[in-house]
Design a protein around this nucleic acid. Structure first.
Length: 453
RNA sequence: GGCUGAGUGGCAGAGUGGUCAUGCAGCGGAUUGCAAAUCCGUCUACGCCGGUUCGAUUCCGACCUCAGCCUCCA
């Protein structure tokens, strides 16, 4: 298996530390607003990656954190006059609901920063003992990037380049402009006592502390959205390596951004579409397939047309299996499975793997190659990506309608009466009436079924 | 400005030094009361300019355009 390593900018043969086991840490969300489809992209990508690793037989330990201490949370909570952790708890619940709707599997461990203050403090202490952390007078505690010779390796940036960057606020307590906070001194908002005084952890240290706690000082894969590469992941590496003198994560993976109108979808740009909004119109698997039709490292331009295209593709798969009963016992088509795996394990090439499945589906439809074993294998492979898991009926009737099921069925029955009596004008009128409500009819083998358009 | 990535047919999107991606849409046909669904057939491509090569969309160089990061961000 090959995986692109952001640290070396090369595809590398994947060799986990322990044979057949994978330890993976993914940076999760800061819960202070609804989950948007840019987040969904990242977590669906990693969901599929973890699923695939398990599918081919790896034992995976998957950790995905929640950053529940953050200035934005504190500020928003203050605006609403509720305790910060109550505020974030509310959005954690929303996040879990959204992820469940999207069939994103829960990680094995989902640690929160607020539960790991002790680990964070002791990591900062060891950085302090080794001379990587400093403070002036009673200032915040900073990490001294000039003491860490590999600083900038992940982002491919030198200290000079970092100095040259225009920074709006220069903190006079810092040795270098790019030094970052390990412990922020504060008495307002949510704080904990520490050897340096009342305060809270800086952003970055939590992920170093929690990944090491659950996966050890050296583990296989660390990932997240591309926007976390610098400074977040760069800083994580600095802290973890300096505190432990170990390698930390061997492989770094970053998912590409979701764009909307040629800009990255992000909370700060306020150009986001929430998961809840999308799921009003589209089945969750449509969103999943929309993402999988593009490689995880490439940017995706969000568009309604793109989602509609993904829907048509998924419709075809569901239609193919709508009349096929999958037997409980069948012989898996090994060569098909192997072909799929060999494509997918080249840096998780989902678009190529799906095109392979589409080609097989096409062959099956044409009646040229309809061995049940092969069809069943196709279903297994789609399922492995988190697709084709819903009942056909549910899938095609997903969404909101203006009409009740009873009303729809009454109209269908009226139309069929009209057809029996050759009153085709009336029949077509009823069909148009339903079409205007977003319901399409199909007359199959003397039976009429309906779908949401 | 620095660093990184990308520009493929109407659209999405892989890939490759010389035979086909794949799918959606379109078009023609079968089927249907007419549609839909399904089936058969089918068109359109590699940003621009040079170079290497017998041959380049694929390798090299310049240019143009776009995006991401450099400040919070998945």
């Amino acid at each position: 298996m090959k995986i692109f390593n952001s640290l070396t900018s090369k595809k590398e043969t994947f060799k986990p530390k322990i044979k057949n086991e994978v330890s993976i840490y993914i940076c999760g969300l800061t819960p202070y607003d609804d989950v948007h489809i840019g987040h969904a992209r990242t977590f669906i990508n990693f969901d599929v990656i973890v699923k695939f690793l398990r599918f081919i037989g790896f034992k995976v330990k998957y950790v995905r954190n929640i950053t529940d201490i953050d200035d934005k949370i504190i500020n928003r909570a203050r605006e609403e006059d509720v305790p910060a952790l109550d505020f974030s708890r509310k959005y954690i619940e929303e996040m879990h609901k959204d992820f469940l709707s999207l069939s994103i599997e829960s990680p094995d461990i989902e640690p929160k920063v607020s539960d790991h203050i002790d680990e964070i403090i002791s990591m900062i202490q060891s950085l302090e003992e080794k001379g990587y952390a400093y403070r002036k007078d009673e200032s915040d505690v900073f990490f001294d990037i000039q003491k860490f010779k590999d600083y900038g390796k992940l982002a491919n940036r030198t200290l000079d380049q970092l100095s040259a960057a225009e920074r709006t606020i220069a903190d006079l307590n810092k040795n270098h402009e790019a030094d970052f906070v390990l412990w922020k001194i504060d008495t307002d908002g949510i704080t904990w006592p520490s050897p340096w005084g009342e305060g809270r952890p800086g952003w970055h240290i939590e992920c170093s502390a929690m990944s090491i706690k659950y996966l050890g000082e050296e583990f296989d894969i660390h990932g997240g959205g591309l926007d976390l590469k610098f400074p977040h992941h760069e800083n994580e590496i600095a802290q973890a390596k300096c505190a432990t003198d170990k390698k930390f994560a061997s492989l770094w993976m970053h998912t590409g951004p979701l764009r909307i109108e040629d800009k990255k979808m992000s909370k700060s740009l306020k150009n986001f579409i929430t998961v809840k909004d999308i799921l009003k119109d589209f089945h969750p698997e449509v969103l999943r397939l929309f993402f999988l039709l593009t490689h995880y490292r490439s940017p995706i331009a969000y568009s309604k047309e793109g989602l509609e295209n993904a829907k048509r593709v998924l419709d075809k798969f569901y239609t193919l299996f709508s009349n096929i009963k999958i037997p409980s016992k069948f012989n898996e088509d090994k060569s098909f499975r192997e072909e799929f795996i060999s494509v997918f394990q080249d840096d998780f090439n989902s678009p190529k793997a799906i095109s392979l499945l589409q080609a097989y589906a096409g062959k099956a439809e044409s009646g040229r190659d309809v061995s049940t074993d092969r069809l069943c294998t196709l279903k297994v492979l789609l399922n492995s990506l988190g697709l084709l898991l819903d009942e056909t009926e549910n899938y095609f009737k997903y969404g909101e309608f203006d009409l009740s099921i009873e009303e729809i069925e009454k109209l269908i029955s009226d139309r069929n009466d009209a057809r029996e009596n050759k009153k085709f004008d009336l029949a077509d009128k009823i069909r148009n009436q339903l079409a205007n409500k977003g319901i399409v009819l199909e007359d199959l083998d003397g039976k009429t079924i309906w779908k949401k358009s």
